[in-house]
Design a protein around this nucleic acid. Structure first.
Lengths: 314, 314
DNA sequence: TTGAAAGCGCTAACAG
DNA sequence: CTGTTAGCGCTTTCAA
């Protein structure tokens, strides 16, 4: 029966059909636990979501959910179950246990949070996993992410072309990805050869609310007003624009703003948001592909996905 | 060992500690498949996401992801694993098989799509599941959802108070939830005792893009311009507003617009969106609570969550 | 090509 | 309170 239902070539077609018919008749279906216990394959991938701590009521992390949807699609093509976990802990042992107990064959981390030391710890245990986030050659693990440095440079160059000279960066530089975007900004600006000031506005999280509050405060007490703002995410960019407008500045006339991610709402914001796009569809596919290479014993390199400046109205 | 690690009261504290220490020393952890095979409990709930078919690149379903996050939290409190499935099929047998093979103990459907007949089919098999969506006493299953009729009435009454007389409803009435909102709108308007026209604009999906296209077409060829629009979702409302503004109408001066869901971006839209809020946090908690009552053999009634009109700038 | 049987790692019933 | 053991439902090796 087992062989027939797995479509083994050892079983004659006739016999298979007979077995399948009987199984259907009696509503039989294999018990996955017994199957997995015996075969020692779980066929489950755990996806760990690193949701930003939600400020107030709503979890606004459209980018990460978009990525989740794309990963889910890629996994279902490979007939893998998706075990969804929220990152409650940033410690390697919790994930080691999840693998040891066969909760999943491997892990995908979406959004790596601020510190990444524990990911290196996890890599040292030879746990099979991939990460969406910053790509760095020193990492002991395989990461897939947008080319944040390049993305930042795109923004920097654009500001330079527009003759902007007083640039503000808004975002939490403790995140490796954000820090790279910041460095790219600087490089893009410098390549254009202009003497430019970059100031930084630090944020505790990615929420609209905290970005709005911090930006408002900055505009009231921060001295000179910036003629360009590069935001670490689209949500932050939207908050920045609202604060700028309320302070009497026009976007993009007085201040030009660029966001990051190109979430669905960016195009529908008013004015439509100029932003750096990352291709989550490709990202999800690649993440899963790399993970299976790892499960097959390979050690695939990290990838930086190309990045594109979508020029709209800001 | 088994008893010690499960913290059974049959085992002495000393013995437990000794067992735990040895387990830790050798990095032992229980094999979940063996555990589940033997104990016949899966401790996994499958969550089936009914994502609207994505138009173009991005899956913009912030409401459903918000709900997913809240369900995830509620499940993790009960130490249940969350198996994420995308609804690839709207047929009962696929889900019966998932339960029969012990892939999950029960199911949660988030967003029930257009037809719901198959949910009744599934209920007839006594499969344990709950649904987020329209609540209807004739349903053979337990549903949790916002009070869509009431939500629609809130919008209708508001329009009536403002003296609006030429109302447009935009949304796909084939969805039970949407149809209820539409009925509520009518009732709210009628209660105010005014002679009011309601026209309908039908939509194939929930995307910004298709709502925008349909609305644009309507404004060009649809005869009289509406002085009020009730949209089936916030995303649709945003598309409607953009189309209205491009057609030279001012919101809310010429046309008043109300959305549904109060997604995070509603408050940050320009102008900030007036909308009907549903409490997803409570929704997620309730969904899980009801599900466990069902697993305990009860037959809990469906619930309609209270609904609130959030008056902002449209 | 099919059948028989061992054993995956655990829990729970039973005996002590 | 602790130890022993049967058996959950499957896959796979071995024998026929």
């Amino acid at each position: 029966v087992s062989r027939a239902l797995q479509d083994s070539p050892l079983v004659q077609r006739q016999t298979k059909e007979r077995v399948i018919a009987v199984a259907a008749k009696y509503g039989y279906s294999v018990n996955r636990h017994a199957q997995r216990l015996r075969s020692k394959r779980t066929n489950t991938i755990a996806v760990v979501l690193h949701l930003p701590p939600s400020y107030g009521r709503a979890v606004a992390a459209p980018f990460i959910f978009q990525l989740l949807a794309d990963v889910s699609r890629a996994l279902s093509i490979r007939h893998q179950d998706l075990l969804l976990c929220s990152a409650e802990t940033d410690e390697a042992p919790a994930y080691e246990r999840m693998l040891a107990s066969k909760g999943a064959d491997a892990l995908i981390f979406l959004g790596q949070g601020a510190g990444t030391g524990w990911l290196d710890d996890l890599a040292r245990t030879h746990a099979p996993f991939v990460v969406w986030g910053a790509v760095d050659d020193d990492q002991g693990f395989c990461a897939v992410g947008s080319d944040n440095l390049k993305g930042g440079m795109l923004a920097g160059r654009r500001f330079a072309e527009m003759g902007r000279e007083n640039v503000l960066f808004v975002g939490d530089r403790a995140h490796a990805e954000i820090e790279l975007r910041r460095q790219g900004l600087e490089r893009g600006l410098k390549q254009a050869g202009r003497g430019v000031t970059i100031r930084d506005l630090s944020l505790a999280d990615f929420s609209f609310e905290s970005a709005y509050a911090v930006m408002q405060d900055f505009l009231q007490n921060g001295g000179e007003r910036p003629d360009a703002v590069f935001a670490a995410s689209d949500t932050i960019a939207m908050a920045v624009i609202v604060a700028l407008q309320e302070a009497g500045l026009q976007v993009p006339r007085d201040t030009s703003v660029i966001g990051y991610n190109d979430i669905a709402y960016a195009a529908h914001f008013s004015p439509p948001l100029t932003t750096v796009r990352q291709d989550t569809h490709q990202g999800g596919t690649l993440l899963v592909e790399k993970l299976f290479q790892i499960l097959d014993g390979a050690k695939p390199p990290s990838v930086k996905l190309p990045t594109e400046l979508i020029v709209r109205g800001t």
